[in-house]
Structure formats: C-alpha cells, structure tokens
Amino acid sequence: MYLLQASGNAAGISGPLFFGTLGMFLMAIGIVVFVIFHQRKVIRYQMQMKKLEDEKQQMLLQASIRFQEEERQRIAADLHDDAGPLLATARLYLNENLIHQEPAIQLQSIYNAKQIIDDAIQLIRNISHSLMPPTLKNFGLESAMTDLFQKISGAGTLNASARFHDYRQRIKLEQELLIFRILQELVANILKHSNSGFIHLTQNANGNKLYFRIHHDGQGITQAEFDKLNHFSTGLGLKNIQSRINVLKGRIFFEIDSSHTYYKVTIEVPKEVTVSH
C-alpha cells in the first residue's frame, strides 16, 4: 500500500483508485466475514433446537415406555388379584370331596362355582375391553365415541354429546384406536380437572385430513400451557397424547375462544382409509 500511495501521488490519480480498490476489497472481506459468522450463528441455533427436540423426543419415549409398563402392571394386578382368587375359589367348590356330598350340596357348590366362573369371565372380558373396546373394533370410532359420550351423559352430572359430520368410510383400526385413546384421555382430563357442565365432540374432514374438536365450558388449558405441562410435568397423560399424535403424524391445538366462555381442543390427523376386500 505504501508503494501504491507513493507512486500514485506522483501521478495524481491514485486517490480514487486507492480508496476505491481498498473499499471494494474491504467490502468483499466484510461480506465473507458476515457470511461465516452468520452461518455459525444459524448452525448453533439449529443445533440448540435439535438438542431440545431430541430431549423432548426422549421424554416422550420414556413416557411411552413407562405408560406401557404401568399398563402391564395394571393388567397383571387385575389378573393376579381378581381373576386368580376367583378361579381359586371356584376350584375349592369343585374339589374331589364334592362327589361324597349330598346332591343338594353338590348342586349348590356347582351353582356357586358357576357364578364365580361367570364373574371371572366378566372380569377377563372387562380387562380385554379396556385394551380394545369391542364397539370400536366392530362398529368403528363413531360408535365407540358416541357410546362413550352416552355413558358419560347417562351419569347425569354433565351433558355430553358427539357428532360425526363426515365419517362415511372407516379409517385404519390402529389409527382409530389411537384417536380413541387420545379423545378418551382428553375427556378423562376434562372430567377430572375442568369442572365443566358440557362436553361436545365434533368430527369433520377436509381433503386428506380428519379433524376432531372437543368443546367444554370448564377450566381448560391453552397451547402454551399444554407445551409447558408436556415438557415439565411428570404426569403421563399429556405426554401420551403427544406421543400418540406424533405416531399419527398429526397436530393438536388447545385454544380458548375469544369470549372466554369455553375451551376447545382440535386434533388434525391425516386420513388412512382401510382397504375393503
């Protein structure tokens, strides 16, 4: 640069050339430095986001595993504590000494054993139904949800109704079960926490998407609260909802209406129609 200035001053043209060249050079260097630093910043931000997302996924995975373990423990407890003693009692009635008893006592014992076996059958059926509701399997999501809402309404404490507007063709059973579980969990949460007077479920479809919306007039949560609870709460309910939504590749929105009179939860899931044979 000293050379440039020295020779340029003698010719009298070096000023604009020198500053122009220097300016362009600095501009080029500035652009390159800006690009490098900006990209580093963006990459750092992306990595932070990825880390958060990974943590969230891990939490959902752990919640899902814990839920499965709890479910297994519950079934094991039901079988061990309820079905086991029932069958053992029935066995007592039907022991070898029964043939030495009088016919009246024999009849009474057989009747009692039959009653107990009926109870055991009913108990096993209940366990089976809790795993896969028969109404859902045989008649579909619409019937299962209507059935559930009728039972809730039948209890008399609140008004519950379900209306399916566009559900002419059933979706895959696995999808129906997941949606049923999500809606069941949402309804259970509303019954448990919201203190509402009515719950209304509506279903609709648009293109390849299915929409389910639950309205209620109790104390609900908004999307921000859902995200917060989902991330920090130790409870399993909301995490299970989120992991099921992820499995369905769907979305869920928790909102409060503008008049602040009722809350709504909307679920959006892609439709996977069953192939009819």
Binding site: T21, F25, M27, A28, I31, V32
Partner: peptide, 13 residues
C-alpha cells in the same frame, strides 16, 4: 471468495 476478492479488488483498476 477467490473470484469475489479478485473481481472486487481489480474493479476500479
């Protein structure tokens, strides 16, 4: 950046 610096630096020249 080779192209950019060369083109910027020799532009006025």
């Amino acid at each position: 950046i080779g192209f950019l610096i060369y083109s910027s630096g020799t532009f006025f020249l």
